[in-house]
């Protein structure tokens, strides 16, 4: 489900376990995520599963909320802001493993992006 929602097929490992633990500790996530799981399964039967899920998201706010929360934690490395207040990062690994930096073809600030001068050239990642 995480892979489907984020668009990255190679995620998993310790971060997945970490995020699963966090989600299971939050009572309001459980039913939402269950609805999302059903919606993802249904979407997979379509020719364009992503488009199908995006359509479901528009119709079912609960599914949309869950998808946004799930994608957010993977991309950002922290939970969504609440009442306009940004959450702290879940762990150092979560911050440094945030997909947002992969999407930008860059690297998280605070972690080397490579050799001296690589920024002169088009990204090699």
């Amino acid at each position: 489900m995480s892979k489907f929602v984020t668009g990255y097929s190679d995620i998993g490992g310790e971060l997945e376990q970490l995020y699963a633990t966090i989600m299971s500790s939050k009572p309001d996530w459980a039913s939402e995520l269950a609805s999302l799981a059903i919606a993802v399964d249904e979407a997979k039967a379509n020719a364009d599963p992503e488009a199908a899920l995006m359509a479901t998201i528009k119709q079912q706010p609960e599914v949309g909320h869950a998808a946004r929360r799930l994608a957010h934690v993977w991309y950002a490395g922290r939970l969504s802001a609440e009442n306009g207040v940004d959450a702290a990062f879940v762990s150092e690994e979560a911050y440094f493993g945030g997909l947002i930096w992969r999407a930008a073809r860059a690297h998280p600030p605070g972690l080397s992006g490579g050799y001296f001068g690589h920024w002169r050239y088009a990204p090699d990642v």
Binding site: G13, E93, F96, G97, L111, S112, G114
Partner: peptide, 20 residues
Amino acid sequence: DLDEGGLSWKQLQAVRLWAS
């Protein structure tokens, strides 16, 4: 990357520095 295994984030910092 961390997902290659065998590295903590601090070790990742170190190996990226060595590589650079």
